[in-house]
Design a protein around this nucleic acid. Structure first.
Lengths: 193, 193, 193, 193
DNA sequence: TATGAATGAGATTTCATTCAT
DNA sequence: GATGAATGAAATCTCATTCAT
C-alpha cells in the first residue's frame, strides 16, 4: 500500500513536471509514463483519464504552493512581517517552481465545470488565508480596519501580476524582488493604521 | 478590397465568439467557418493557421477591451475620476463581453514564444496606460509621488482578480460593483497625497 | 453527386469483401480504406462508425441475396418450379458469394438492438417472400393448404443449414446440389396436394 | 484434484453466463473472474486464453443442450413420440437457457479453423442423433424410408429458425410452442408412411 | 496454487490543412 | 477568390496476458 502510493506520487510528479513544460494538448500520456518510469497503462490504474491526471496535478501544485505560503507566515511574527514573508515566499516559490506554477495558473481552466469550481475553490482558500492574516493585524492594531475581503483580493491580484512577469516576461530575479517589495509597500500604505 | 476586409472581419468575429465559448482544442475550424457563414477553406485565405486565427482573436479582443478603458478615461476628468471610470469600465466590459474576455485570459496554446511575447506586450500596453494616468494625477497633485510602474501593476492585478470572480465564480453583477469600488478605494488610500 | 455515390459504393463493396473474409474485430478500418482506394478519414465521411459500416454491408449483402432469390422466382413459372428455382438460386448464391453470405449470417448479431431488429426484419422479409410463393401454389392447387408461415420458416431453416454446410464444412458443390434437391423433395412431400 | 475441478467448473459456468449476455469482444476476462469469484490470473491456470475459454463454454453449452435432447428421446417411446419430445425439449431448452443458447449460435471469434471444425462437429453430432431416431422410425414402419441425412438436416434447420425467433424476435413462449408443433406436423407429413 | 498490478500493442476516430474545381 | 471533399497523422484508452509474490 505504501508502494502503491509511492507509484501514484511518482506519476503525479512526472505529470506536474511535464504539464509545466508545455501546454496540455502537447503532452502525451506516454511522455508522462516514460518520465515516471512506468507503462502507459499503469497511469490509468491510478488516474481515470488524462484530464483527471491534470486536475490532480493542479491540485497538488497549488497545495505545495499554499503550504509554502502558510509556512512562511510564522505564527510568532507580527502581522506586517508575516505579510512581508508571504510576499517573499510567493516570489521565491514561483521563481523556483516555475513548472508547478505554470500548472497552477492553468493552461485550460475553462473546460469542465468541475475544474472551474476547483479553481475558484483555490482562490477562496488563498483569500481566506490572507484575510485571517489581515484580521490578525487589525486586531493587533498594526493595520487600519479595512475590508479584509477586498484587500485579500487585491493581494491575490498583485501575486498574479508577479506571476505573469516572472513566468512569461522572464524578468531577472532581483528586479522582481525589488518589484515585490514595492508592491508590498504600496499595500502597507493602504493598510497603515 | 472592402469586400475582403468585411469577410475577414466576419471570420474574426466568429472566431472570437467561439473561442470565448470553449477551450481552444474544443473549437473546430469548421465551427468558426459555419458561424461566419463561409467555407472552411476560406478561412485559410485570411489566416495562416488555427493558431494564427486564435492569436488574431486575442489581439482583437484585447484591443476592444483596451479601447473601452481608454474611452472611459475622458481627458477632461481629474485623475481620480479617471481612475474611477477605468475601474468601472473594466468591470462593465468583462461583464458584458464575457466571451471576448475569456479569450484574453483564456486558453493559450502558448506553445509559440511569439504568443507569449504578444501577451507580455499587452500587459505592458495596459501598464503604460495606467502609468500615464497615475503620472498625470501625481503631476496634478492628486496622488502622492508613488512608483507608477508598481502601482500600475497592482491595479492590473486587481483587474485580473475581478476577472476571475466575474467569469468563473459567477458573482452577481452588483456585488462585484461594490467590490470594485472598494478595491478602488483601497487603491486611492495608497495614492492619497 | 454521382461521383459521391460511386465512392460510397466502392467503400461499401470493400467493406463487404473484407468483413466476409475475417471476423469483425480482425478488420481494421484502414484495411477497408486501402482496398477501397481511399483514405481512412474518407470512410468517416460516408459512414458514422465502423459498426455503421458493418450494418450497411449486412443490409447490402442481404439485399443482393434477396434480389437473387426474387429474380429466380420468374412469375411465369408454376409454384413448384419457382420453389425449385429459389432453392437452386439460394445454393448458387451462397456458393458464389461466400464472402457476402458470411456477412449475412452475421458474425455479431448480438451487439446493438438496432442490429437485432434489422436481422429479424430480414428474416421476416425472406419469410413473407416465401409465404407469397406458397400461397400462390396453394391457390393454384399445386400445394395442399398448409400453414404458410410455418412452412416458410421450415424452408428458411433448411436454407440456413445449407449455409453452414457450404460455408463452414466446405462441402463439394455437386454434393450440395444433390442435398438441396433432396431437401426440396422433402419439402414438396409435405406440400404435395 | 476435486477442488481443482470445482474451480474450473465455476469459471466455465461464469464464462457461459457472461458470453451469453453480450458479444465476445464486449466480455472482459476480468468480468468472468469476478463472477466466478476468482482472480484474473487464476483463469489462466485452467484455460490457455480467452478464445480457449470461449470454445470450452461453447462446447459445454452444446453438451448441455445435446444431453437435454437425448434425455427427451426416452428409449421406450415410439419414434413419432420421440421426435415430438425432441422438438418440445429443443424449444424449452432455448427458452430457459437463453444464455447458453446464445453462445451456441452466437459470436464466433471464428478465426481459428479449430473452432469451425468444432462447430461442424457439433452439427454432425446432432445430425447423427436425429438420423438414428429417424432410422429407428423407419425400421419400425412409423416413417417412410426417407434419406435420413437430408431430413435430419431439415430438422436442424427448423431448430435454428426457432432459435432466431425465440432469442432475437422475442416471441411469446406459447406462440412459439404452437409454431414448433406445426413445424413438427409438417415434418411428419413428409415422413408419414 | 492464486493473485492482481503492471504492461504496451493496437485501433478508432478526429480534425487541421490541402488543393482541384 | 471560394469551396468542401479528401486526407492521414496522431493520441487516448482498453484489455489480454504475464509474472513476481
Amino acid at each position: 500500500m505504501q508502494e502503491i502510493s509511492e507509484k501514484k506520487a511518482r506519476i503525479l510528479a512526472a505529470a506536474m513536471d511535464i504539464f509545466g513544460e508545455r501546454p496540455y494538448d502537447q503532452v502525451k500520456i506516454e511522455d508522462i509514463a516514460e518520465r515516471a518510469g512506468v507503462g502507459k497503462g499503469t497511469i490509468y490504474e491510478y488516474f481515470v483519464s488524462k484530464e483527471d491526471l491534470f486536475a490532480a496535478g493542479l491540485e497538488a501544485g497549488f497545495n505545495e504552493y499554499f503550504m509554502a505560503l502558510v509556512a512562511a507566515a510564522v505564527p510568532s511574527l507580527p502581522a506586517t512581517a508575516k505579510l512581508q514573508a508571504v510576499f517573499g515566499r510567493h516570489l521565491s516559490f514561483i521563481s523556483q517552481h516555475a513548472a508547478a506554477t505554470r500548472i497552477i495558473i492553468g493552461e485550460r481552466p475553462a473546460s469542465r465545470s468541475e475544474m472551474r469550481e476547483a479553481m475558484v475553490g483555490r482562490y477562496m482558500r488563498l483569500g481566506r488565508f490572507l484575510e485571517e492574516l489581515l484580521q490578525e493585524g487589525i486586531a493587533a492594531g498594526d493595520f487600519r480596519p479595512v475590508d479584509t475581503a477586498v484587500v485579500a483580493q487585491a493581494i491575490i491580484g498583485m501575486f498574479s501580476t508577479l506571476l505573469v512577469f516572472v513566468l512569461f516576461a522572464g524578468q531577472a530575479a532581483d528586479a522582481m524582488e525589488k518589484q515585490a517589495e514595492k508592491l508590498l509597500d504600496f499595500c502597507l500604505l493602504g493598510l497603515a493604521s
